[in-house]
Design a protein around this nucleic acid. Structure first.
Lengths: 223, 223, 223, 223
DNA sequence: TATGAATGAGCATTCATTCAT
DNA sequence: CATGAATGAATGCTCATTCAT
């Protein structure tokens, strides 16, 4: 934490084997998460049994329960992970741009280029599997999506100000934020189908089109 | 549809009691559908058992299986019904307007006023419960949503022509159509949460806002 | 309930087949109960699986759950049944005698002759299997045994009055009542072991001896 | 127990650290036993997992298995310990009295004052938890309780001789011995419930009452 | 047509026990 | 000696579906 010497005083210097075991433990956790993700996406949450997950991760059923409280927790973790990744991607794209409007566009493009293409599994988990499966999950979904909506809403206000847009009703901005998310979500979902049938390179155009549509929609509210 | 005489040729002349039984049969079917809808929406598809449905419809389990092949078919029927209702509403709103652009707006408004408010259960069935539940259902979902997308796409092209919009790439129009559906879907879903907390009258504004946003997005593509 | 004619008015006259089905249902219930009793007594509650019970009753697992909420309920029912039978036996023996003291003795004898010999399974269920298995069961056990204790206590007071016995402390009578139950319980339990090794006819003597011991104990408290 | 020299002959001379380790080992064993006792009494044998025990003793699961062959052995050890303690208490009380009849009474009182009050956990283990849990345990229970019964039986014969009581049938004495144990057992168990609701001081009276009842019962058999 | 008892495959979850480190 | 990750058999329970009446 501070100097090397102090570190040794605070934490028992871990033996090399202990370090390795710790690393292995984390790998197992990760392996299980990936196994579950793959199965949830391709077979569906309810059609996937815990045994399936164990088999795919090449561990025993008991091990799954050593790392996760129950099956639901696996989906929950995957969902959180997905939303977190998405928020980071969008946030970074938005922040790195000079002007808000550029950032807003960049975030839109990043949604497709960085999230959908690079994490197709996460798209399915966040926008499909997590829907309507269990009480607890729906709760989490609500919370996480609210955060996402808030992100977009905040960014939207910044952009709007920069573009000289004033919303008569604060609710209007909220609707727009939600609508933007809806566009991304559905176009991404549609992409998951198209992706199988078409060339992945087309997605670049798709993202651009969606972003253009959105930016045009915003201009509607210009004074 | 035909004359009395013709009718007698096609169907054996029904006794009064047979007529009554036929009517009762249709009522049963309807009752079962409504019972399932209510439970799927409020408890979730997987959390609802066939026995639950039978209880709510005040019939026995066996009867459910007399009217429907299996549990999945119930959801399938409800989903089809929902999508059909929605398409009719949107189609009528679009057709009744003088100009395509007016019709497009009218359809947007109708989505909220006629579909969401008047059939809240159907909204949940179409946009939530039918997601990621089973192989077969996902198939149906894909097919039905494609029809819906096509409707919007066709209408979009008409409107675009009327507005003098030309898309360089046909894919762009498709993306816009999908995006529009995404806006409606997500805003509607969000509405289901808001509806509990807020006044239902606010929805009018929400619908208007969404439509404005969309129409603005379209103008972006004007030459 | 009243006249034959009235009966027909109150209850829909059951078709012969319905009557038979009802009877079969009750037989199933009984069969399941007996299968569970046998297994609980011979293998122990925890060592008996629901599948074991189903197998022995020659039905499927699901059927067990159609008749009983869960495994615990089976033991609960058996326990209640056992205690009920015992109370009836003791009560009848006590009531049918001319003098309370004779009744008290008769009840003691009946405990061995009528309960232990004729319902050896129930003895094991009531005094062995139901002990310390689950929260809910312990609760029931407490309640039922309290009733049994109260029965003995009430009888004891009657007998004591008849014999001219006055307890200085009401607690004393309670202790005696509990003690009497303890004697019966343990001697009966011991009998279950002896019974395997010895002649069942010996039990007559055992019961007599226990009763004599108890009656002697009571006389201790004579003024 | 022996001289230093002798000790050295039997065991290799232990280094101080080895001595400490030996002591720690014994402490661990004891700690585990106490942890298990507490949990078995308060949660029940089956409801207590080996992990629970390890947690409470602040060791790892593996350690539990270093000290005990398996979970059952823990209960077995606790049961033996309990019975042993009880036998010692009863034996001492009986031996220290001048006359057998006084010793018999003293032992009865000691059962409540020395065993029940000072080792409430052991009461529950011996008379509740050890009942009907597993084949092996039931075996042990039978054996240990037989020893206890034999103790009482032997003492009973001595007392009876001293009081001039002659049993026509040797089985009668056995029944009385078993009956006496039954009284103690059940009154003790009842006490465990009363103890929560009432003043612990009342137990003195309870013990006295039980003993009086027993002594009265014996006099019944006087010639 | 309607009933509801019966089925049994399927599943999530637990937990005593082992063993490499 | 101690650890705790890993195992996997065992089990209670659910529920969609069937079918004799």
């Amino acid at each position: 934490m501070t100097s090397k010497n102090e570190k040794n005083r605070n934490e028992p210097s871990l033996s090399p084997s202990a370090v390795r075991r710790q690393r292995e433990k984390e790998q197992r956790y990760e392996t299980l998460l990936r196994a579950a993700e793959h199965l949830f996406v391709h077979k569906g949450y309810h059609e996937t049994s815990v045994e399936n997950i164990a088999d795919r991760a090449e561990v025993s059923v008991g091990t799954v329960y050593f790392y996760f409280k129950n099956k639901e927790e696996l989906l929950l973790k995957l969902f959180s992970e997905g939303v977190y990744t998405l928020r980071v991607i969008l946030g970074q794209a938005f922040m790195q741009a000079e002007k808000p409007e550029k950032g807003f566009e960049a975030a839109g493009i990043a949604f497709f280029d960085e999230f959908c293409i690079k994490h197709p599994g996460k798209v399915a988990i966040v926008f499909k599997e997590a829907v309507g499966q269990s009480q607890l999950l729906e709760e989490a979904r609500r919370t996480m999506l609210r955060k996402l909506t808030d992100d977009v809403y905040t960014a939207l206000l910044t952009v709007s100000e920069s573009l000289g847009i004033v919303y008569k009703n604060p609710r209007t901005a909220q609707v727009v934020a939600v609508g933007i998310l809806g566009i991304y979500e559905r176009v991404a979902y549609q992409y998951l189908m198209w992706a199988d049938e078409h060339d992945k390179n087309e997605l670049g155009t798709i993202g651009r089109d969606a972003v253009n549509f959105i930016m045009g929609g915003l201009s509607e509210f210009k004074a």
